[in-house]
Amino acid sequence: MKIRLTTLPTLVLIMAFLAALPAYLAAEEYSSKGADTCLMCHKAAKWGVMPIFKTKHGSQVDQDAPFSNMQCEACHGPSNEHAKAKKKSEVHPKITFSEDSEVPVTQQNEVCLGCHESHNMGWFGSRHESADVGCASCHAVHEERDPMFDPLTQQETCFQCHQSNRAATFKPYGHPLRFGSMACSSCHNVHDGNSDFLLVEDNVNDTCYSCHAEKRGPYLWEHAPVTESCSLCHEPHGSNHPAMLTKRPPLLCQQCHSASDHPGEAYTSEDIGGRTNSRFLLARGCMNCHSQVHGSNHPSGSSQMR
């Protein structure tokens, strides 16, 4: 028998094809009864999946909801192999969602973004995407109430990575996160990398103005750093100084003001008691007189005193 030059590669290729085929077929097979296959085991309370039927994901009416089409496998992918496996802990569904999953985070997130398409707008290349944060790292879709939608439970999730910000909520002066009156998402849009610091608005000041609109002005006599960034003087996550200032006046102000006479004077501990200079140091320091530090609309307010 004459062996042609092309025969050997053909055989190799056929073998490769056959080798790939079982894995391909096995990986792509859906379960025979959909969610009923999964829930045979996973309806037990310890798995914590049944509350999903009290959420939007569990709807069988909304055509975009997982349970109106591929049910569990809409998110977890074809899972027949897992269903049939004797040792189920060794054969996982095609997609599993956790930080320990063998499935790359990008692939996990693609499942979510496949339906929540609007989040694609700022997600790719954003700080969280770069850090391989999975949707499931924060969101718990099987729970009756996703913790990310409650201000108190949301911050606990954020603090798992942003530990210093948890401590900051206990500082003497801060926003009311620990009371649940604000959430991290009041200021941050963690899905959008187009804004600075993943803020809800495009820059720091616009974010602050969404609650503190009185600071927007424009004022007749503007205070220059205020227009540039509120964070030049304030530490929004919490501070050791009143009004979340980064320092205490007069030193805060003296970082920029050193004109002759009282702005440039040294105010030392010896000025605490009774001397003339105490008026520039005690109580609110410079702001005893210059109370309009965010700007003044008074024609005589050029020194931010009116």
């Binding site: 990986a27 009864k33 009923d36 039927f53 349970f67 074809p78």
Partner: peptide, 18 residues
């Protein structure tokens, strides 16, 4: 896999779904 034809869902009644 993404483009795999939809399975036969005639038996996917979701009777265990609460």
């Amino acid at each position: 896999a993404e483009e795999t034809a939809a399975p036969d869902m005639s038996k996917w009644v979701c009777k265990l779904c609460a």
